[in-house]
Design a protein around this nucleic acid. Structure first.
Lengths: 221, 221, 221, 221
DNA sequence: CATGAATGAGTGTTCATTCAT
DNA sequence: AATGAATGAACACTCATTCAT
């Protein structure tokens, strides 16, 4: 990841400027301005409905400057994807690599996912809606990259099976899909406002994370 | 549903002509031609990338005729949505209303969903990618209609809890989301070709349906 | 004039059916239906904004039937023009031919014009706006026909000069233009609602006719 | 008037560049190019028959550039209207405000009107045909602005009555309409080529102006 | 780096007109 | 005569991308 800010560090809002010296101060500034503007606008209007001029206006920079930093509109989306998803994958990787048990790992992943959404719903909107779906036929790289998440979680599950923490009669890849699907739809529901929240948002997300993992491990029966 | 052909009946390809008397024979023919062409093209190229001329060419009709039957491009998508989703909801409704236990009902729903995908992947592609996501801000009706599925399944789960077939400590609405999410991602994975199938497709889907429900009811632990 | 109903007879709303035997009863019926509908719709929406389907709907006949009676959209306008304008010219011709003095003749013409507007503003709208202006380059016939009105009034003025009722130092053609212009703009003003009417409309128009002629004959000085 | 070039100054073709600093040099250039092209094409083909590509070709610029300077086709017409009519109204205002008698004022107005037509018949065509008529229901502003001319001339007449220069038994608003109508139809006649000119055009117009005012003041009787 | 004017291909939509029945 | 489905040319408008300065 050229810009290795994962979701965790994004959460704690660590020193932003530090990471910005792969390019000129001002250049990187503008580049970041564009990306941040793009994230907002993509999330609000959707990728297709977003015009380059929208991004430029929101970033308060000149129209044509966008093309100094990005080859075209799609590259902007690509960059956002790589940056955000990369950060997310790094976080999941760290969780997968630590020494805790399966339950703790899954809880961490659920928490990271849901908290990320709570703090930066725009990113998640873009990840969920714009990238997975919009250009799905265009870029096989994109698909492969999304696959990383599945591989990491599948590995966690397989290790759990090997350690005897999980049933061994289920395909870990399929179980992984279902776990991710559970998280995904919870986020999707929020985006679509199918489920209304009452009370403390934070507690709500923690509870959801627990429930998802509880259900995944112990079942509804 | 004005056009009450649900996914099941669509599968068995029951008498098609019978439903065609809300319009002139020829008119309905052309209308259907357009819809079928649209389903194919939307699924292949995506809604945004599809030109009206693509649909007309694929249906082998004149360009302008499309606008004889549909007010505009979006209405075509709308019609597909209502037709297909309506059929699907009817099928789920029937399952929810029968007298079997929770496990059987969930199995049926999973089977219907997955089989529908196996037989008409284009429809599901359109349902999953083009409608749920693309136009999400435009039409609140759309969101509400998708919500029907959640309500039906939530009801099944709540009744299961009341009959003592299911744990009562979990919110049925949330559990419902997670169940749907499991199915959804499985379909999505197929669409995205993240998971490769080996051997008999049919058996594969049956096994998946069982696994999803097994995991949902008994958990991974 | 194949349909020789002039503005005067239109005013008195004489037996309508009588004139309709140059064609089949029903055929002429439909033809008339279309023309009447066209007059209304052209006056409301303007020629360009009027679609054939608007006319058909308003006439409560089938879409394609319009093309049985009229070669194309423009022919409908043409027919209205010839019919209405022809009637109007006939009325002016009768006035020009009678034995009264110039003042009486001009008063009659002004009265006919303004009353026609009062009773059938749609016709006048079409005459004034749609025909004189819209298609002016298309049909030289149209221009020639409008010229008839000028010729008739010019003749009246020239005769007045010869009889010593009018000044002889002014070009009668130019004076004619100015007289017509006075009437025209008064109608136009009404159409554009630049001038608001208070009290009895009828008396208002009679007074205007008198004023126009008074001013034309005696001047403002 | 933001672009205060009235018909008189347009006639004398005063320093053009001076007025051009509300926009960038080049920008204003192109904008003007478009407007000038539009005036020509609108006058030749009529507003409705004019395609954006006609304007672009005539201005020798790229198609899309038209939309850089004008929101849409109608705005181009609007701009021409405001610019030209505004200039015309300014000229009439100046005449109304000076200290001469009614006859001189009316003569000036007639001369300005007719001379404007002689020098720039396209503008008058557009003013007379395209704007007053075409969009009459759309923009109430348009009607109001045309009303300004009536108000100015009505004021002149009313003042003439107060000074005893004019008869007081006629409604000045109505007299104003008739005066304008006389001028209008004279212009219209030229446009329609109902009246043929022989000899010196200039003298012709001067004579007409005199005749119109003479007739208006002294009458035909 | 920065600006925003310039370009022009692309596409949804309209609607007069024709045609088969 | 009557119907309305079928046709397809036409056109306004959008917007990603390039370019001159």
């Amino acid at each position: 990841m050229n810009d290795s800010r994962n979701l965790e560090s994004q959460m704690s809002d660590g020193a932003r400027e530090k990471a910005m010296h792969d390019r000129t101060e001002r250049g990187a500034d503008k580049r970041r301005l564009i990306l941040d503007a793009a994230i907002t606008v993509f999330a609000n209007k959707g990728y297709h409905a977003t015009r380059i001029s929208d991004i430029a206006q929101h970033a308060e920079i000149a129209y044509g400057l966008v093309y100094h930093y990005f080859k075209n509109k799609e590259k902007i989306l690509d960059t956002i994807f790589l940056e955000r998803w990369g950060g997310f994958i790094d976080a999941v990787q760290a969780i997968a690599d630590d020494e805790r048990g399966v339950e703790e790992k899954l809880l961490s992943i659920a928490a990271v996912t849901l908290t990320a959404y709570r703090r930066r719903p725009e990113w998640v909107k873009i990840l969920v809606f714009e990238i997975q779906r919009t250009q799905r036929f265009a870029d096989p790289d994109r698909v492969r990259v999304v696959g990383q998440l599945f591989q990491l979680i599948t590995r966690i599950l397989r290790e759990g099976q090997e350690r005897g923490e999980l049933r061994e009669d289920l395909d870990p890849a399929l179980a992984c899909s279902i776990f991710i699907g559970g998280l995904d739809i919870v986020v999707t529901n929020r985006v679509l406002d199918l489920v209304k929240i009452e009370g403390d948002e934070n507690a709500y997300y923690v509870k959801i994370a627990r429930t998802v993992v509880d259900l995944f491990l112990n079942g509804m029966g």
